[in-house]
Design a protein around this nucleic acid. Sequence first.
DNA 1: GTGGTCTAGACCACC
DNA 2: GTGGTCTAGACCACT
Lengths: 150, 150, 150, 150
Amino acid sequence: MIDYRIDRGSGVPAYVQIVEQTERALRMGILKVGDKLPTAKQVVAATAINPNTVLRAYRDMEQAGLVELRRGLGTFVTRSLARPAAEDDAPLRRELTDWVARARTAGLERADVLALVTTALDTYDNEHVHEQDSRTPGDREPNKKKEEDV
Amino acid sequence: MIDYRIDRGSGVPAYVQIVEQTERALRMGILKVGDKLPTAKQVVAATAINPNTVLRAYRDMEQAGLVELRRGLGTFVTRSLARPAAEDDAPLRRELTDWVARARTAGLERADVLALVTTALDTYDNEHVHEQDSRTPGDREPNKKKEEDV
Amino acid sequence: MIDYRIDRGSGVPAYVQIVEQTERALRMGILKVGDKLPTAKQVVAATAINPNTVLRAYRDMEQAGLVELRRGLGTFVTRSLARPAAEDDAPLRRELTDWVARARTAGLERADVLALVTTALDTYDNEHVHEQDSRTPGDREPNKKKEEDV
Amino acid sequence: MIDYRIDRGSGVPAYVQIVEQTERALRMGILKVGDKLPTAKQVVAATAINPNTVLRAYRDMEQAGLVELRRGLGTFVTRSLARPAAEDDAPLRRELTDWVARARTAGLERADVLALVTTALDTYDNEHVHEQDSRTPGDREPNKKKEEDV
DNA sequence: GTGGTCTAGACCACC
DNA sequence: GTGGTCTAGACCACT
């Protein structure tokens, strides 16, 4: 079962953090179609945020077509964002795990790693805007968040 | 000069996005001690956000000891977060650039890449909590974000 | 300015009624792109519902791509649902106005009229499912409500 | 036998939808005094909602004097809402059927049609509030919905 | 002064 | 016992 970690004081709204972490789990294949999210009550017990805040996040994801809220039953994943290339034993993933280990050993903090990756992504995207859209066909979402930048 | 990109609709407050992007530029060495941040007026022209919002971000960074606001002159970087291992021509960075290119070619979206990296970081950190703290001594910052999870 | 009427006791949630009435105004061309919806405060003054309920409705419409919430400014229509055939002086509309007058004169209540129309729509749709989809191209909405039945 | 269609996700409670659809069938003469409603079990099989929800709807209608629940036998219509002017071959109805066909052909969606009708009803009622009450004497119902607006 | 987040708690809808 | 709605009020983000 997914285990939300809310960072109060990051400035990022709690419900946004829940959505982000759920999406991440979907992309990583940790959550699959049909899986049950924790109940609002369980999330409250684990994170000390208000039940309504959890429900707000779940409702947002329902409107985005990611999950379904079934009254009396719980909240269930209805759509996968999993990528084969992101599987546990995919070569790309093994290489990344290795790279991260070396980066951390070299003294880079978590934030440094994320800054490097973001910069690398920006650089790549700037050089390839003309070639392909970053979006896989069929992956259209309403009000999709735009990407940020350095 | 750093070029802020505000993603309205991401749910993340605009001033937080400015701080995040500035920090990232500091870590990447794009901004160095003594460099001047864009004026509020310039940011407003580029992003269509309100001057007060920019000033709020700059004030937060001043409190964090990253920049200094000099009335009538502008806002200047007072502290570096640069990492040698993150330099432009560092082997780690070259490897990452290469990996990102292959990941994108393999069909991974930007969000997939970030999800993978976050997961890899979480995994690494969970396995090394006992060995070392991720924080370089003396690198303490106010408002430091805690880490999240998958 | 659109004037919401909330029917407490209809069993239909207040925020749903706001969304429905706004959509109706969009379809009728009463609201156009760029128009400002009443502020939450104004709606509260007129309907005696809670500001958060209004904001919930506005947020839902934002996610549906119908309006945009601009902090400090208000809520603005971003998409039209207007149909030329529904214009004030369109023949179809004149005929309907006339028909409604005769129906009411014949003793039919409002609910009778709505029941008749719903039934006529159902009958028509059942006979034409194969010919065309009821949806105008480009009018795609996420989580579009399914239609009901007698 | 009436065939309920529940639109989960419309925001309208399931039991309200059952009541609405039953009332509509009564007005259209599809259900007559003495007719038997489907058993809760049948409705459950057709709609995948919970038996208690169906019973809640039937109980509401019993309180409204529309039906009678006879233990062990079923639920039976006890009151008609039929209107002569709404009969299958009434001129008004034929005209409406024709109008709906033309409206749909002209590109109007189901929701457009309902918006037009609602608006026409509102307009008519606003112009005739002084002349007559829309309610036929003796047609008083508990839980009667109040009318809305554009 | 606008909308936005979050809390807290009551009550309802559904299983 | 699950999610859903609504209220009330505090505080924040933004113009």
